[in-house]
Design a protein around this nucleic acid. Structure first.
Length: 104
DNA sequence: ATGCTGACCGAGC
DNA sequence: CGCTCGGCCAGCA
């Protein structure tokens, strides 16, 4: 297994600490990808045979990814909440729960 | 080749 | 705060 782009993405996602989230855009910027869509494409395409916590990746405004992706956004939301991620209504409280490491 | 579609984002109103 | 729009680029029919 060559360490291609997807490997880098997964390694980065695995570094997201418990109780924090990161965004597609942050990942894209950090790895030098052309567009955040590429990140979404990589995560969607690869099976979850890895222990990658994909549920910690959200939109830049704090919305959760999709209704079909993790068995529903309610499921994902409860998952995150149990990890300590703060919510502001339907959205993640990005101000406090965004992983600061990438957001430079 | 070409024209959608999408696990996105920022600007603008 | 909410909605639209354009740009982005990899896959796929």
């Amino acid at each position: 297994m060559p360490n291609d782009l997807s490997t880098l993405v997964y390694e980065l996602v695995e570094k997201v600490p418990l109780g924090k989230v990161t965004t597609y855009g942050d990942i894209a910027r950090t790895l030098g990808l052309k567009t955040p869509r590429q990140v979404g494409w990589i995560l969607h395409r690869n099976p979850s045979q890895r222990k990658t916590p994909c549920h910690r990746v959200v939109f830049s405004d704090g919305r959760l990814s999709g209704q079909f992706a993790f068995g529903g956004r309610d499921a994902q939301r409860h998952w995150l909440e149990s990890e300590g991620v703060l919510f502001n209504g339907e959205k993640v409280d990005m101000k406090r729960s965004r992983w600061a490491e990438l957001s430079h």
